[in-house]
């Protein structure tokens, strides 16, 4: 067996299973599972609300927050959470008050936070490596505190999903119909967007700001190809995202390449397989124009 490399440290082949003796590997596994579950679930919302670019907007908000955190000497994660929360909570009202679609609102917020991020980078002195790490991410460097936060957000998302499953389903199906039926559609939508923002921020360290967009779209889209049942779609989306994260993590450990990139490549491969094998594809063909 060939030697393996963990964070640049070469290990003997016989020590393959010894990676599990490292605490950071367990933290990375926990981040993979929790990140996969959260990204898989919010991804279903993102796909069914047809707002795929919310991931990019949120990750750049988190990035802008991190940059300003580093600039003023405050914990970048705290600043990321604040920026992301404000951005997520602004999307809905900007769309509603401005009379524009949610996607347009996301575009407006995205441009604004991108401007802020560039401004912050421009104001930074010395190397910007720490700031740029937020864009690339590394699952192997996730801290214990981040795992605790991921646990909290995972529990929160699962509890809210179970408690408000019906209302969320109605909003995902059609916002106008949900509203006309007396469901507080605005509140539900704003909460979903807020949870998207928090989830992206908490996963940005492990998966990376640029790559998380792909995870929250590929995994639910793969699930969307193979089921007509919403509960199954949630389950499959979370499962695919967890598989992507774990396999990306282990492959990156063994061949010493960036974990975030591998996570996305695996999730894209899962999507490609589901797309090719999709039973819906045949049915859509039969229903679609000749």
């Amino acid at each position: 067996m060939q030697g393996i490399s963990i964070l640049g440290i070469q290990a003997e082949g016989t020590a393959m299973f010894e990676i599990f003796t490292y605490e950071f590997v367990w933290r990375a596994m926990a981040a993979s599972i929790l990140g996969g579950i959260t990204c898989g679930i919010i991804g279903v919302w993102v796909i069914l609300l047809n707002i795929p670019f919310v991931g990019i907007a949120m990750s750049h908000s988190a990035f802008a927050g991190a940059v300003f955190g580093l600039l003023i000497g405050v914990n970048p994660l705290v600043c990321s959470l604040i920026f992301c929360s404000i951005a997520a909570l602004a999307i809905g009202p900007v769309a509603d008050r401005g009379g524009v679609s949610v996607n347009i609102s996301i575009g407006i917020i995205f441009s604004f936070v991108l401007g802020l991020a560039f401004l912050g980078i421009g104001l930074m002195k010395g190397p910007r490596t720490e700031a740029l790490n937020f864009l690339w991410g590394s699952i192997l460097t996730v801290s214990y505190n981040q795992i605790v936060l991921l646990c909290i957000i995972t529990l929160l998302i699962l509890i809210l999903l179970i408690l408000f499953y019906r209302e969320i389903m109605a909003v995902l199906f059609n916002r106008d119909i949900a509203k006309a039926s007396g469901i507080p559609e605005h509140i539900i939508l704003y909460v979903l967007l807020f949870l998207c923002g928090i989830t992206v921020t908490l996963n940005i360290n492990s998966i990376g700001g640029l790559l998380i967009f792909s995870l929250i779209t590929s995994a639910p889209l793969a699930a969307y190809q193979i089921t007509y049942d919403l509960k199954t779609m949630y389950f499959l989306s979370a499962l695919f995202a967890v598989i992507s994260c774990l396999s990306g993590l282990f492959v990156s450990i063994f061949i010493n390449v960036p974990s975030g990139a591998l996570i996305i490549l695996v999730s894209s491969m899962i999507f490609a397989i589901c797309f090719v094998l999709s039973p819906k594809k045949k049915r859509t063909k039969a229903y679609g124009p000749s």
Binding site: L48, I183, T232
Partner: peptide, 12 residues
């Protein structure tokens, strides 16, 4: 491809 059944759509 919507993952919502007729019954669920009526239940809303």
């Amino acid at each position: 491809r919507s993952p919502v059944s007729v019954k669920e759509a009526v239940s809303i």
